[in-house]
Structure formats: structure tokens, C-alpha cells
Design a binder for these strands. Structure first.
Lengths: 379, 379
DNA sequence: AAGTATGTTGAATCAGCCC
DNA sequence: GGGGCTGATTCAACATACT
């Protein structure tokens, strides 16, 4: 057999476009419609905010605030903005893999409409995440609270999609060993990170900080995943994806932005492989049937298991089940039964006694796993 | 002014609308329709969130989470929820004075629909304000980010209403003389503040902390103003309004909640005029994720950490974990591992080397904290 | 009395795999 | 695709009991 199955599968069909690590010029809806169905793992979208600014805004010293007044941010009405939102969210959903997820960032001007459209189209919200800006623009007129945050919505493609990527252990380890919360603190994009034109003016009005996108991708993608950004702008998503060993697809209408993004991304170096590994917890450990402990000779059929308080005793049977009284079932079922609970982790509940010392059977499982790793059974 | 229980229950005569400091029993829409037009200064609304919970949820210790499964939170569809939302927002808008404002609190389950409806009905959003919970419930299954905040929308009755109340200087003074931001940190309502029944069970499943409502009223009302709460529950809004010298109108369907609210409010003493400023409590030391050091550029992915004696070396990964040998985990876990201990403070154990000098990463954490303090984002 | 250990609880859309 | 089994998963406050 000359060609392995995996080799065959890796080759893209001749008809499918090679679209990874490319910027597609054009409107986001038509460009997404041209992409293969179910082909991207994550979408990060920073759509127009539909800012409705009245007149010009001036600082207390009378200098004019450089507002977002680009043509692409103007919509005639909420209805027009909704129609646009639904169109691109629909096209995005087709491109997303069944277990893919989407992130959309916005402010109070547009995020409520985006969130409602997401729900209407069948997406299932997983979290809303607040980007707390450590250095937001002040409210110059003193008529409102300082607008110090933006909102990101993280949603799966379908309500019942349970297999989406969330690097829980990685996030927790990076956050002092407590769960990562839904409010994140980052500075806005300034200084050397902010792209400027030759005149020293900012190239894009709403360039997002790379740190923000980095946490998004580290949380919800694996190395090698494909990340689509339908409002690519100057390519922050592409730059971060490349640095983190993810593939990107960008869609952008403005050739000037595309040129800036290409130059920017080309200068990005991918981090070395070993810096990109993701912390994994117990969930990623290989399964070990309890019977393996018997087969490995670590526990003999007929041996007695007890809980830490020696209140319950179970007898090990040759087939990997255990018995308490007339009850014969798995270590988990029996552990639950004797405690009157609906569930129980038998690995941590049951112990074996040797010379008066109790050892949790989870310790024996660890030994089995070590052996498996040595034999190369487990990659 | 003494409030008797019978006085609280008295319905206002239709001819002379004396409706201040009363709880009206009934459905919020019909009760609001019976109120005079343009008669209240501020509305604070905590509507049903339309949580769509699946099965039971258990904590890791097998205890069952007491879910919000009350009938009033059940809606057949998003469409049904939208119809309900539009109905009460419409009735609320009629009751609101032209320069009045409305606050609505919600979570990602409902807040996007509320926000879109507000905009559709002609309200004008002034801010969205994030309530950051200092002690939120964890995500027990580790499948998402910890849901650590709720969102409040603050809106004026009309786009062109410029005369709404915003106590800018009061807010700024209460916030160490920097503008009050749109993200507020408060603990959830527990302990002595949480109303309990005779059996010691919580009286209401979603009682809000008084401190949160107090900041809302101190920001957007003047003493003597009338505050309407169409989902009065156990009367947090009424209690805070009375304490702060504002009038309230409550609407509530459940007689048991009304009885509890009456008793609660009757026990509240109005604060003396001069003491109506909020006290701000800052946490001792803000938590800094190790990942923040990477995001701040103080440590690069791939950098090497060593202990003070240079006996151990760990490599920093892009996701905020570190690695020694095959072990990938937090700075704390890896520090414990290499020393053969069960625990370790990674902040003081690990160092970075620059020009031959070892610096504990705790020093870098200190720098991050200083920056945060300078920007006023600690609290 | 002061500190330590243990138990309880909160607006929650909270599994993955094999057969 | 459905059914069944395995076995992984929590943070900050507050309350209570005990040393």
C-alpha cells in the first residue's frame, strides 16, 4: 500500500481553494460564501460598530477628537445594521466547523444587536467576555461614565455542540491556578504596536491590542487551527495567529489595509513549537480500565478495597468489577452506591491496604500509565 | 416619616396620583399603564433573565446547585421573551419623565435582547455598565470562563434628552478623584444582607446587593426623585431609595415578596443629607495573572525562569504556563514539582536573569500592579 | 478569646467516549 | 445517532464547631 489513508486525506480536493494564511480582498459576505463549508475552527470578528456620533467631539482644551467616522461605519438605521449583521453571521456560520466557535467584539452601540442576531441564527452563547481597558479615553464632557470596556461574545455554532475547544487548564494555570474569569484587563493598542502611516497618523481607527487576541486564540484554538477574520483591517488576528502557530484567513475590502497587514504579518516570527504546547489536565490523560490493574498484577482478584475512612469494603472480582454486599458493578457505581450518591470517582474513593498503609487506587492507575508511556503505547 | 404596612399597600386613587413609596401588587405592564404619564425620574429594572438551564448541575463535591428554576423565568422562545420585553419597556417609557433614565440589569442570556429592544423603542443608550462580581460562582465543569459579571444598560428616554441627571462630580469624588468607569466591582448579596425565611433559606433567588443599587441611584438621581422598580422582588431598590432620601414605586406580583419588602423597607432609616456619598472599598492587592507579564511584554514566550540557586530551569510558554521536562503547568505547580513539594509560591520562587542578575518575577508583578494603580483600574 | 478546620452557598444556558 | 458508562470538575464569603 503506497499511500496511507492519512496522506490521502491531507491532500485538499482539486476543486477546493487553498485559502490558509491568505488575505482575501472583497466584501466579507461574498468572500465567505466562496469558502468551503465547515472549514474553519474559529472566527474572530471585529465588525463596524455603527457608531452614531452627533457632531464633532472636542477635548477640554478644544482639540478635536479623531472620531471613527469612516464610511464603513455608517448605517442608515438599526434595521440596515441588523440586515448587514445577519448576512455576515449567516455566511460565517456556514464556514464554521460543527464544533467551531465564534468571537465578536463590540461596544454598546452594536453589541446588543449582534448578540440578539447570534441567538436568532442558532448560535449558542458560551460567555460574554468584558475587555476592561486599563487606559481608556476619558469622557470629555463629564456627562456619562467613562466608557472603559468593550464586550466580546463567544458562541458555539449550535446549542448542542459540546466538543468545542476550550483550553481550560491552560487558562487556569496562566491565572494563578484559579479559573479565568469573564473580565479581562488589557491596555488599548498604543505606542510601538499601533500601526502608523508615513505622516505618523494611525493607520486604522480601531486597531485591537495583540494581547487581547492572543488570549482569545490561546483559550479557544489549538496549534494548527484555522482562524477566520472577516473584518481583517490591518491584520492583528493574522499576526497573532501566525505568532501562535495558528493559520489565518483574512477578508478585507481596503487595499491599503491589506498592504499594511501583509507587511506586518510577514515580519512576524512563529514562536518555537515547545512554547506553543497547551497545558492539559487529567481530562487529557489516557483512559485506564480498572481491569488493567488486575491484568498488570497490581491488584489480585479477591483483594479488598476500602474508602479512606475504612467505612466501606469492596471485593475485587476477576472481571474488573467490584462487589459490596450483593451489589456488583464498576468501582464508580459501587462507590456511589455505598455513599448514597448519584456519582463517584472510584479512582480516588477506593484504596488498597498494604502493611497498614492505605493507597488510593488512583496511584496504581498512575503506575499503569507510566508503563504505557514507556512502552510507547501512549504518544 | 413613618411607614405603616397598611400605608404601603394602599392603591393610589386614579384622580390624585399619590403613588410615592408604595408597592403595587400586580403585573408590571398593567400597573405601569395605571400610573400617570411622565411621572418618574428613574426606572431600575431587574427583569427575568430567561435562563435556559438543562439538567441538574452538581459541584465537584456532588452537592446540587440550587438553580433559578422559578416559573417567572420560563419563556417559550426568544420571540416570547422579546414580546414581553417590548411590552414592559414600552409601558416604562410612557411613565418616564422626558429627562428620565432607565437602568436594566441582565446577563448574556437576555441582555442583548433587552438592549436591542431599548434601541428599537427609541431609548438612547448612555452607557453599558459591567458589574464585576468579586465572588462569583465558579464554572464547576471547567467548560467555559467563570461567568463573573452582569451587565447593566443605562439609557435616556430619547436620543435628544440632554437634561438627564448624572452626578459626575459626586461619582468622580467617590472614585479617588478620577472619572467613574463603566466597570464596577461589588460582591454578590450574601451574609446578613441576604433575606432568609424562617427555615434559613434564601427568600428570593436573585436578590441584588444594595451597594450596586446605591451607586446607580447616587449616579443618576437627586434626593427627592422618584425611582420606579417594575420587578420589585424583595424591595432592594425601595430600601436603598429610602435610605438615600429618594422616593420609590415598586411593582410586584408575589404577595410573599411584597410582605418581605414592606418589612424590610420599614426598618430602613434615611441617611443624613451629608452622608450620601458612597464609600469605595479597594481590595488589598489585585490578582495578577502570570499571563499578564507576558502580555505586558515583561517576559517573552520561550524565556527561561530559574530559582534563586539556579538549580532548576523552566521555560515560559505563550499561554502563560511554564515547562520543566515534560511537565507543563502553572508557575506554582511546576515550582512545587521540581522541589518535590506539594505547594510553592511561583511568584517568589522563580526568577528571570538579565545581565547576570536574577530578579524574582514577583518584582515584575509589582510593576504590573503599579501600572494598574496608576491607571485607577484596581478597584 | 482567638485561631483553625470544616461545611455551605451563589442568576449556570457546565461531558466525552464507546458501542 | 441514541444509550450507557466512565470519571472529571470549584472560588470567595460566610457560618459553625472545635482547639
Amino acid at each position: 500500500m503506497a499511500l496511507s489513508r492519512s496522506a490521502l486525506m491531507k491532500r485538499p480536493p482539486a476543486s477546493a481553494p487553498v485559502f490558509k494564511d491568505r488575505i482575501l480582498m472583497g466584501h466579507c459576505v461574498s468572500q465567505m460564501e466562496a469558502l468551503p463549508e465547515a472549514s474553519v475552527d474559529v472566527i474572530f470578528a471585529d465588525p463596524p460598530y455603527n457608531l452614531q456620533l452627533g457632531g464633532d467631539l472636542h477635548r477640554p482644551d478644544q482639540s478635536k477628537v479623531d472620531a471613527v467616522d469612516d464610511a464603513w461605519d455608517q448605517f442608515e438605521s438599526f434595521q440596515a445594521y441588523d440586515a448587514f449583521t445577519r448576512a455576515w453571521l449567516l455566511a460565517a456560520r456556514r464556514v464554521l466547523k460543527p464544533n467551531g466557535t465564534i468571537w465578536v467584539i463590540g461596544s454598546y452601540h452594536n453589541i446588543f444587536r449582534v448578540g440578539a442576531s447570534l441567538q436568532d441564527l442558532g448560535y449558542w452563547i458560551l460567555n460574554d467576555v468584558v475587555w476592561r481597558k486599563s487606559n481608556p479615553m476619558p469622557n470629555f464632557r463629564g456627562r456619562r461614565f467613562q466608557n472603559a470596556h468593550e464586550t466580546m461574545i463567544w458562541a458555539s455554532r449550535d446549542q448542542n455542540a459540546k466538543g468545542y475547544t476550550f483550553n481550560y487548564d491552560s487558562m487556569k494555570a496562566a491565572n494563578d491556578d484559579v479559573q479565568m474569569r469573564s473580565d479581562w484587563l488589557f491596555p488599548i493598542c498604543t505606542g510601538g504596536e499601533r500601526l502608523k502611516d508615513k505622516a505618523g497618523q494611525k493607520l486604522h481607527p480601531t486597531q485591537k491590542p495583540e494581547a487581547l487576541i492572543a488570549r482569545v486564540l490561546l483559550a479557544s484554538t489549538k496549534p494548527g487551527d484555522v482562524v477566520l477574520d472577516p473584518f481583517f483591517g490591518t491584520g492583528t488576528t493574522g499576526a497573532v495567529a501566525r505568532r501562535l502557530g495558528r493559520h489565518f484567513v483574512g477578508i478585507e475590502r481596503d487595499p491599503a489595509y491589506i498592504a499594511a497587514a501583509e507587511q506586518r504579518i510577514a515580519a512576524v516570527e512563529r514562536l518555537p513549537e515547545e512554547s506553543l504546547l497547551i497545558a492539559t489536565g487529567k481530562r487529557a490523560e489516557p483512559r485506564v480500565p480498572f481491569a488493567s490493574l488486575i491484568e498488570a498484577g497490581l491488584i489480585a482478584p479477591g483483594a479488598r478495597l476500602t474508602d479512606a475512612g475504612r467505612r466501606h469494603v469492596a471485593q475485587v472480582r476477576a472481571d474488573g468489577t467490584v462487589a459490596v454486599g450483593g451489589e456488583v458493578a464498576s468501582i464508580h457505581r459501587v462507590g456511589a452506591k455505598v455513599q448514597g450518591l448519584s456519582a463517584c470517582n472510584g479512582w480516588t474513593f477506593w484504596h488498597v491496604e498494604a502493611e497498614g498503609v492505605l493507597t488510593p487506587i488512583d496511584e496504581l492507575r498512575r503506575l499503569v500509565r507510566e508503563k504505557m508511556a514507556l512502552r510507547g503505547v501512549v504518544s
